[in-house]
Design a protein around this nucleic acid. Sequence first.
DNA 1: CGTTTCACCGTAAGCGGTTACATCATCGTA
DNA 2: TACGATGATGTAACCGCTTACGGTGAAACG
Lengths: 343, 343
Amino acid sequence: MATGREIAQLCGVSVATVSRVFNQPETVNEETRERVLRVARELGYQPNESARALSTKQSTMIGLVWDTDHRRPGWRHPYLQDLLIGLKSALSVHGYHLLMLATSGDAREVGASLADPVGYVNMTRRHHLGGLVLIDSGSDAEAFEAFAQSGVPCVALDVAVDGPRATYVTSDNAGGARAATRHLTGLGHTRIATITGPPGNQPSRARVAGYRDALREAGLPPRDEYVVAGDFYRTSGTVAMQRLLALNEPPTAVFAASDEMAVGALLAARAAGLRVPDDLAIVGFDDIEIASVVDPALTTVAQDKPGFGVAAAKAIMAMITGAGREDPVILPTRLVVRDSCGA
Amino acid sequence: MATGREIAQLCGVSVATVSRVFNQPETVNEETRERVLRVARELGYQPNESARALSTKQSTMIGLVWDTDHRRPGWRHPYLQDLLIGLKSALSVHGYHLLMLATSGDAREVGASLADPVGYVNMTRRHHLGGLVLIDSGSDAEAFEAFAQSGVPCVALDVAVDGPRATYVTSDNAGGARAATRHLTGLGHTRIATITGPPGNQPSRARVAGYRDALREAGLPPRDEYVVAGDFYRTSGTVAMQRLLALNEPPTAVFAASDEMAVGALLAARAAGLRVPDDLAIVGFDDIEIASVVDPALTTVAQDKPGFGVAAAKAIMAMITGAGREDPVILPTRLVVRDSCGA
DNA sequence: CGTTTCACCGTAAGCGGTTACATCATCGTA
DNA sequence: TACGATGATGTAACCGCTTACGGTGAAACG
């Protein structure tokens, strides 16, 4: 590994000049600059990031806080890969890398879990991270708030947070739910139910609100028995659907707040001898991969999955350089019409 | 941020002693050790990882090389999330973190892509990474070989590599394929076809070999027209299936080398008016999520997805500490019988 | 011709740890 | 009593880079 010192010696300049060539090129004479650059190239010079970080007190890494909630072992993020693709590519534009923070192995007192953000914030300081990206892993929003209040730049995904240098990005959940429900009312349905996410979940609440909006628009009275809670999981969709089908006046259409639950509902409907979409119309949310392979293919509200990552990266970078707080980002959604509503 | 020096002053010892408390605790007197520890805790001391890395020439991070091959924009890893879960948790046991390396933004000459591993290896040196984990992203194995030869400890997933400090982990692809095909012969099928992955792909070749083994065991003659190549994508499965159905003597059973292609084949069969499993039996490979939601649910060969990550982490750590080369890891597979074979 | 300005560059002090080596007291032993 | 062994700690160099500050020479100015 060639060092700056070696380059300096070979070029007959000081290490300071070498450093300046890379950090403030305009302050060094063009001739010597090119000489340094050439030698650096020949030597395959790679600046030592540790030394640089030590000196400047900041690294070119941002941390990813992604804890699978241990209270829900089977939890999977619906579209982690797309999110990471967006995040990674947007960060790379600025020369930043993504550090997937690990909870300390011997979780004695470090206790780095989402429920106790201290460990993560400590890691942030240790590594001089530029900021944190917080992925909603189904746990409570309180932990997110603690992150946001810690002072480190952070952007949360799908959880509204507020803090001195914190912001969040989320989909237009209400709008998406409205579009989904409108699609149903537009098809003539009047008995439209919804299967929601966990009560505390913010996107879930927004989706319920959008659902209610669309009913109101269509002049349909809200019915409490048509709103049943799930947890985004597939089986909860099945259970919810069974409950709905047991009603005196079962719905003819269902808006599920996740594709997983929509599939669960579809299974329940099929088990009950109902044909989809003829006897029951179903709309989902997310547009994950399975939406297009189930039979019938699921009509659903698509989220801009890589867009989450890109927006998060932009927000983080803006907070790092700008040092201020950023406005939340609301990503547009898009209704994808397939076969589960008979449209 | 408290530093070691502050602790030293408060404790009336030197910074060397503070450092020793954390790195060679046994060499420092118990009394002073506890004093240092207590003060460190009170001050919320977090060691500066940049300084430590600069001094020791090694960080507590290992790099993840995961490039979505740009020649295949839509490419997705079939089970990235599970893999990451395993990787992350296994690394955290050793106090290591995962750095998702980004290709340099201005890809002038740095050219950090899988096709040109130089950029990644440079990043490895810059950050003093302990090693690299290479995720197969569908690109050619040559690039992997270049990584393996670079001298940095690295473990490849699903690509057999050889190098001074390189190894790999993969599934028992042949065994899995054998089990899948045996399942088919066991059900009485004699006309069994296979849809393979890309010709150059190693797991794909092993699966073909396993398929052939099982045919031989059952005394069935191999038929070239029953082996048609796909690319692991869904649509290639559809195309391949159409080709198979056009044969004079179409197969009554198909082993697809990926679940995605199995689904594609299923779609083609359905479009051709065939009933699955009655007219055609299908087995897949991977056991990804969609396998259980398609209709009929897919019988498939399950891979130990988190196991990939865990094994990779173990191998990397072994190479970091042991400094030698490690044996490749072959993960067991498991046949998951569902409904697509009528078993 | 003296003085100011400015572009360019070197000097050196950090940044916060790690560790080889020296120091020193203590203790067992010849 | 002298001496080597041992355990505990301090000293100081070093890791490679950044940057405030000062110095130099040439050009511009009065």
